[in-house]
C-alpha cells in the first residue's frame, strides 16, 4: 500500500429528495463501453456493483427536466416518461400524464399509506 498515490476522492451523486448517495463515474448519455446503447437523458452512471462483469453500468439518477432537481431513479423520487421528472413535478402536473401513470401512482400511494398504518 503506497501512501503517496492517494486517489482523488470519487464524485458523489446524492438524490435531493431521498438523500441516497453513491459515487458515480460518468455523467452523460453515452457511458463508456456500452456499445450500441444510448441513454435518452443525461445520467449519473456508475459501474453496476452487483454484476461481476466490469462493463455493466448502473444509472443512479439524473436531473429533473422541469426543475433541474438532482433525483435518483427510485420510483419514489422520480419518473421517466420520455423525460425525467422529479416526483414533486409529477405531482404538480399529474393531469398531463397518461391515466395509466396516474392510476399507478394512486395505487402506490394507497399501498404506502396502508403500510404506514400497519
Amino acid at each position: 500500500m503506497d501512501q503517496t498515490t492517494t486517489e482523488i476522492p470519487p464524485k458523489i451523486f446524492t438524490c435531493q429528495l431521498c438523500g441516497l448517495s453513491s459515487p458515480f463515474v460518468y455523467y452523460g448519455q453515452k457511458p463508456p463501453n456500452t456499445r450500441a446503447i444510448v441513454l435518452l437523458e443525461e445520467c449519473f452512471v456508475t459501474k453496476d456493483p452487483f454484476s461481476p462483469e466490469k462493463e455493466k453500468f448502473l444509472v443512479l439518477g439524473s436531473t429533473c427536466s422541469l426543475c433541474s432537481l438532482c433525483v435518483c431513479v427510485a420510483s419514489d423520487c422520480s419518473l421517466f416518461y420520455t423525460k425525467r421528472f422529479c416526483m414533486r413535478c409529477v405531482n404538480k402536473h399529474l393531469d398531463q400524464f397518461p391515466h395509466q401513470i396516474q392510476a399507478e401512482l394512486a395505487k402506490k400511494k394507497q399501498q404506502s399509506s396502508k403500510a404506514a398504518v400497519s
Binding site: 446503447i37 444509472v59 416518461y81
Partner: peptide, 21 residues
C-alpha cells in the same frame, strides 16, 4: 406548462435507454 408528453401511452416511453446500431 405543456410538458409535451406523447398523447398515447406506451410503456416504452418509460425507458430511458435506447439501442441502435
Amino acid at each position: 406548462v405543456d410538458l409535451g408528453l406523447p398523447k398515447e401511452y406506451d410503456a416504452r416511453y418509460r425507458i430511458n435507454v435506447s439501442v441502435c446500431s
